[in-house]
Structures are given as structure tokens and as C-alpha cells.
Amino acid sequence: MNIINFTPISAFVGGSLIGFAAFLFFAFNGRMAGVSSIASRSIINNKNRFDNILFLFGLIIGPIIYSFSGKEIVSVLTNSIPLLIIGGLLVGVGTKIGSGCTSGHGVCGISRFSLRSIIATITFIITAVITVLIFGM
């Protein structure tokens, strides 16, 4: 193992902003900022639907506001159509059945010391590491 492309400062600063955003959502709306729950509820559940859609809209305009700083945003993604379809379905079904994703379990759940979230986070990270090990990057 060797370490490459490590950007600890921007990662920590960006992560702190994510934590602060989650705190605002909790303090004002009383809810957990789990993106998979917010996104799935925006189409499945009528309750707080407009709140959920506006949160997602905020996620989309975050990078646009960042781009005003003049810095380039790098985003490299596979263009394999089967991989995008299968990946999207697995992420959608998995986070719905497993009640959370990196933000809901990984950030909010661990912050609350929820055993369920700690186990879910360990499980999805190990599975993702094995997946990369098998299929490569």
C-alpha cells in the first residue's frame, strides 16, 4: 500500500462544512441530513416533500456557488452504461432497504453513537473495498 492524492486539509474543511450543514438541518428542521432518506422521501412520501426537494436543490447549486471562486471542479466518472445502471440501482435499493448511506449512517448515525449505523457503515465500506479489489477502479 502506498498513499497518493491525499488532500487532508480540503477534506477536513469540506467535511466540517458537511457536519455544519447537518447541524443546521437538525437545529432548524429537527431532522437528520441523510441524503438517501431525503432523496427517497422526496418521491415516495408527501410529508415535508418541498423541504426535501429544496435540500436536494441546494446540493445541486453548492458546486455552482463554489465554481464562482474560479477554481475548477474535477469529477471523473465511468462512462460504462451497464455499470451506471447497475450501480444506481444497487445504491438506490440498498440505501432504501438499509435505511441510509454515507451521510445518514456514516456521518449522522455515527455522530449519535447509533450501533445500527456503525454496523451499517463498516458493512458498506468493507463491501465497497472488496468490490474495488475485484473489479478495479
Partner: peptide, 10 residues
Amino acid sequence: SGIIFGLGLT
């Protein structure tokens, strides 16, 4: 909250 979250991700 969504905007700040999106900024953090970026």
C-alpha cells in the same frame, strides 16, 4: 443546509 452540504462535498 443543502447548499452548505453541497459546498462541503465540492
